[in-house]
């Protein structure tokens, strides 16, 4: 296994996540797509760190940061989705368009 395979995998996962984030309408599905994108980033960070010419641990450390931030983001995101559901009784992003 060389670096290319990991980077191609990361790019594919990222593209899937990006497509999902823009095509899905449910807020929860968009959050899942964002998580896929962030996990693609984690793969690429760890792979770069492992195969880098100068052995560094920066990528591994960066991954831990990105996982923590992703968890925090989803926590706030789900709280906001709950607030949306209380107000609109719906989490379809197409139906929530008071602000135009």
């Amino acid at each position: 296994m060389t670096l290319e395979y990991y980077i191609i995998l990361a790019f594919l996962l990222f593209a899937i996540g990006l497509y999902g984030a823009f095509s899905r309408r449910s807020a929860i599905m968009i959050f899942i797509s964002i998580e896929i994108m962030l996990n693609a980033v984690n793969i690429s960070l760890v792979a770069f760190s492992k195969f880098s010419a100068i052995a560094t641990a920066y990528g591994h450390i960066f991954t831990i940061f990105s996982m923590v931030v992703a968890a925090a983001e989803v926590t706030i995101g789900l709280a906001i989705v709950l607030a949306i559901f209380r107000h609109f009784e719906d989490i379809d992003t197409n139906d929530i368009n008071l602000l135009k």
Binding site: V81, A83, I84, F88, T93, I96, L98, L99
Partner: peptide, 8 residues
């Protein structure tokens, strides 16, 4: 409603 929508 507006504030929740803005946040989302």
């Amino acid at each position: 409603k507006q504030s929740a929508e803005a946040g989302m």
